[in-house]
């Protein structure tokens, strides 16, 4: 319970750290109250006030997080609050007030206050901040598309693919017939809610090696006790093959000699692609 309360409180702090639309909602509620505009729709107003309070107070927020099955993060309890609707309602009333001022001759005041409101809206939306890197996402997808197209052209039966994260991230959406050694839930842990399957330590080592390997095929991993161990490329290749991989993509940062050595260990051949090496048996 203590953990849930802490989550509720840290969730609120995080929710209000990026942009300030939640603050704008509270301002809107105060404006509607002071201007008496809430009487136009008292049911919606009183509901919004109580729902917003429930989401802010940690005890009720924790109860709501329990109600939404703990599957969703804190921000999703704000689904209960009609934030967009009530903020827009208050903004309409505020701007209509300015229109009356404009029509009664106080034009400069009305215009400057309206422009100020728009500026507040822009500032509350956290300008410049971004949840994810759209350009990187597109670039990764294009690279994955190139690799998947190449594999499809080779057409030598069903693949079980082991590749860097950016390829695996998009492989299944590009080609549902391909099988992966591990999926996106290896690094996006929120996806683990959708299934009971977990990854073995060997597969976790393979992920660590693939993402962290240096040019000679060495990477730092952890043993079951949490101590640092060096992961050897050859061992990892053998583990991948015994896990079922028959098509391996290696990152560009590895040097060609190391890749040739790994291809020999695999008993197959290596081929240089534009951004990767392709190892097949």
């Amino acid at each position: 319970m203590r953990e849930l309360l802490l989550n509720a409180w840290s969730g609120w702090l995080q929710f209000t750290s990026g942009g300030k639309l939640a603050a704008l909602l509270l301002l809107s509620l105060i404006f509607l109250w002071l201007g008496g505009k809430w009487k136009k729709e008292p049911v919606l107003y009183s509901y919004t006030v109580s729902a917003a309070l429930c989401c802010i107070v940690p005890v009720t927020a924790a109860a709501l997080m329990l109600y939404q099955t703990k599957f969703y993060d804190y921000e999703w309890i704000w689904s209960l609050v009609p934030m967009t609707a009530v903020t827009a309602w208050a903004a309409v009333e505020f701007l209509c007030l300015q229109r009356h001022k404009f029509e009664s001759g106080r034009r400069r005041e009305a215009l400057s206050v309206s422009v100020l409101l728009l500026a507040v809206l822009v500032l509350c939306s956290g300008p410049g901040s971004s949840v994810y890197d759209r350009r990187q996402e597109r670039q990764d997808r294009l690279r994955a598309q190139e690799v998947m197209t190449l594999l499809a052209e080779q057409g030598s039966g069903p693949f079980c693919l082991w590749a860097p994260r950016e390829i695996l991230e998009h492989a299944r959406e590009l080609d549902p017939s391909v099988e992966l050694l591990y999926g996106r839930n290896m690094w996006d842990i929120s996806l683990n809610s959708y299934l009971y399957d977990t990854y073995s330590e060997d597969l976790q080592d393979l992920y660590l090696w693939m993402e962290n390997t240096d040019e000679t095929g060495l990477a730092v991993g952890k043993d079951p006790e949490g101590r640092k161990v060096i992961l050897q490329g050859e061992d990892c290749i053998n583990k991948a093959v015994s896990a079922g991989a028959n098509c391996i993509i290696l990152p560009e940062r590895m040097n060609s000699e190391s890749v040739e050595e790994l291809a020999e260990a695999l008993g197959g051949s290596a081929r240089r692609l534009e951004h990767y090496y392709l190892l097949t048996r």
């Binding site: 921000e75 934030m83 967009t84 609707a85 827009a88 903004a91 971004s130």
Partner: peptide
């Protein structure tokens, strides 16, 4: 204003606009 708020909410995961 709703359309403007949808644009404005494009800053964080969990917001309507995003």
């Amino acid at each position: 204003l709703t359309a403007m708020l949808i644009w404005a909410g494009n800053y964080a995961y969990g917001m309507d606009g995003f």
